[in-house]
Nucleic acid binder design. Sequence first.
DNA 1: ATGAAAGCGCTAACAC
DNA 2: GTGTTAGCGCTTTCAT
Lengths: 348, 348
Amino acid sequence: MGAAAPLERPGRPQPVTLRQVAEAAGVSTATVSLVVNKKKTARISDETRQRVRDAIRDLGYRPNAMAQTLVSGSSRFIGLVADAIATTPFAGQIIHGAQDEAWKHGYALLIANTEGNRELETDAIAMMLEYKVRGILYSTWFHRPTDIPASLKESDFVLVNCFSTEPGSRAVVPDEIQGGRSATEILLKHGHRRIAFINATIPAPAKDGRLQGYREALEAEGIPFDAGLVLEAYPDQEGGYGATEELLKREATAVYCYNDRMAMGLYDGLREHGLSIPEDIAVVGFDNQEVIAAHVRPPLSTVALPHYELGAAGVRMLLGLEEAPAADPTKIHCPTVERNSVRALAPA
Amino acid sequence: MGAAAPLERPGRPQPVTLRQVAEAAGVSTATVSLVVNKKKTARISDETRQRVRDAIRDLGYRPNAMAQTLVSGSSRFIGLVADAIATTPFAGQIIHGAQDEAWKHGYALLIANTEGNRELETDAIAMMLEYKVRGILYSTWFHRPTDIPASLKESDFVLVNCFSTEPGSRAVVPDEIQGGRSATEILLKHGHRRIAFINATIPAPAKDGRLQGYREALEAEGIPFDAGLVLEAYPDQEGGYGATEELLKREATAVYCYNDRMAMGLYDGLREHGLSIPEDIAVVGFDNQEVIAAHVRPPLSTVALPHYELGAAGVRMLLGLEEAPAADPTKIHCPTVERNSVRALAPA
DNA sequence: ATGAAAGCGCTAACAC
DNA sequence: GTGTTAGCGCTTTCAT
């Protein structure tokens, strides 16, 4: 962290304390505490209870969560350390899911952005540890293996959208294989048999998983895998655009793109060849990147990366509300989102 | 908040306390505190200091920030309440900027997502107040007027990307007028004189500001404002696409679109008419929505919404590091981002 | 140069 | 039914 700025808040009155409420209501602090916390076991007369409530309202009392935490020993914070919170909308979804789920269980989210900087990361984790967080979610903006920072182990933690081979670590990741299968199945169920796949050039669990899913889906339909139908390109719009020529040589009736950005680029390339989607060729993407998939022409059928769910499941796992079954990361389902870039293949 | 989940963390040892360090080092807690906080005023012998440091390291001591906060009265938290943290990448940028700046000054960010739900919002603010945050950033995902929730006033606060007419409220918003001016100027400086503007249909500060900026820029060049050159459409891809026909009737040599999404749709419409960008018509957008602007064909010249800066400036203003000059919201500059959708107008 | 002790706001065990 | 009291882990004033 940087240098500490001064703390004074000029002009703001000291917050009202429990003791002040007690004095105003003419009762002890214990009594006030009991009515504030609605303890079932305590028997407080309705009359007293009302006096206390009035005092609380009149004084505008707010409990001091720090003091409560000091007593109970553990805070109601969950830390979320992210390597990139705004590079893509995806990280935002993880935060969103984590925040909603945490909130549901009475926890607040403490977040830190590390930009992948190890030092910042160590500081962030230290800060969270000092605030006695209930646990830490360690997340990455794309699905990948990761090393577990040593200090992370001082707390409960769950890896989100990343994983480690270290034993005893819990992790939640998207089910890339199922996702690849689903993407391919959209095409298959519309009658396509000759389906190309434009994979990414960069190594990643997604690259392997999405390919494997493609193979599995074909195999399930009894279609032999043809390596010639698998291309590779850089996973963005330019990559998709640039793959157009090669793709066309394959004479496939449908393409499954590694991600929506590539599909968007491919749309441009296809259009330049006077081809229309889905009439001349069907296209599916992956990621369900809203700004793109929902608004290209025609809207793109794709498979969604479950980032919201990843964040939420991470919290549940952290709180022990969800089993972390095996040594393997828990896989989260990637749902299919069908739009209009695929239509039934006309009989030959 | 939802029901509280149990707090036990099975199997984790109790954290080491100051007192344990003191005992291990054979000194008093006061001494340990002094060395931990590197107090200049305290004179501790090097030998003692070293003993304490060793004990800290050996025991793996971490200060309990809750206890520190209890003593000091104010935490090193800054709260950020957002109405939509993942609807667009924009909210993520605000969080990012706020988090970086907060961190720089030794503060951590506590975030809450309200989905625009007033009740959730009240709860979120209450939570932050109970954790004795240094102040609260109240942010919206698009620039708009807002009501200030009553409880917000119990703390220092700054409105981010929104504003209120209530006196005494500080706010940071994007400078829409300057942004509109800059967008128009990109076109102007390439020699365009007949510039259409596709504005949004939905009322918003952005709608008025971006139009005003357009008028100002034209005026500065001595070009009379022609209301016939201003169209309106729903501010997304479909809206931009749908405005194509109307736009073409205007016979403008350049268009300035209310946002990048409209520009993206317009690209499709223009292409269908066999027009190419920037040869046949120049296009600029607004927002600098990365996934779109940087990757459409040709890459789109646009004006960036300064979300990161908004978050950072909000924090600085909250901490009193930056003046909140007037009663009016502080306006943040919208930088121009030139790409390839505009080229010099060929002489007529 | 270091220790003793009070107290931050709250909870919970135990008195009465 | 309600009050008293002893901490939770830490900082800080005041002794020594």
